[in-house]
Nucleic acid binder design. Sequence first.
DNA 1: TCATATT
Length: 389
Amino acid sequence: MAVRLCDVASLLRSGSWAPEPWTGQVIAAMETQLSNGPTCNNTSNGPSTMSNNCSSPVESGSIEDSKTNLIVNYLPQNMTQEELKSLFGSIGEIESCKLVRDKITGQSLGYGFVNYVDPKDAEKAINTLNGLRLQTKTIKVSYARPSSASIRDANLYVSGLPKTMTQKELEQLFSQYGRIITSRILVDQVTGVSRGVGFIRFDRRVEAEEAIKGLNCQKPPGATEPITVKFANNPSQKTSQALLSQLYQSPNRRYPGPLAQQAQRFRLDNLLNMAYGVKSRFSPMAIDGVTSLAGINIPGHAGTGWCIFVYNLAPDADESILWQMFGPFGAVTNVKVIRDFNTNKCKGFGFVTMTNYDEAAVAIASLNGYRLGDRVLQVSFKTNKTHKA
DNA sequence: TCATATT
């Protein structure tokens, strides 16, 4: 791919584009995402070669799978299978794609699988999309381990940890019992201090069992109190409970009504007008804001979402740059770089579809005028008219 | 006394 994450991150820091104060938080989120790059996740999940390290390959199929089949974790709750396919399809041809959902509620479980035709594309997807910020999440892209019963229910819940214990120290404590797939210490959202509870996911269930035997009711080195180690709650059971409790909720609390949405829109439009006041620069967005309030001729609205026109992309731009730029602002359902049929080079523009008006509006306000390389992007809702130069 | 990682 032509535009690397790190290039964009350095461009963001170059100072050529100064964000307005009100966009600071969003841009800070973007910078984090763009600077995170491909290698921000520290816990590896490569192909599980430990279990079949004999000289002759057990099964050529499973080894092939491990090179094309990816597991994608920490997906935004509202992301659909189609969006997952759209995102990963921008890298290469996909053999199959599955978003895992709760069997009962149908809710996304926040992870999925993408199987490429070409192992090179799988590798490229890890390098390109691992660490990508989507809404409030940072997705993780890694090779899927061959599916088997032995790797299920290998997740531990740990409580009573010393508040000073770091994630690294937690892993050190547990790593003697097996390969750790992922670990986490929960922190207070306000203070950021450890809540003394966390999770350890082992490669295999037997490793988790041994860790319980060895560490439950034991004091970690230097600790004054023993810790509790047990299997973590099964997430599917939890969603069933949520379903049950939902039955007892008043129905009108489940979805925000049109009034609430309109109120939100008013606040957002005021915010946008303020932003353009500060900029002292006319932008078509101000008109978009007003017309959408009046409910007439809504630009960019195509029923399926809000279509955004992105102009002045470089000839070597690709879809991933659009995901990187717009993903942090909210639900993106599709991106498209328009290319010349013969040269396959970008013709200088592309489109992004976002589900929610508010998020699309903030993305536009934030990214219009954004300098990408030596180009200043023009970002607006797509209009029906042909764009003139 | 628990966020969401094996189709």
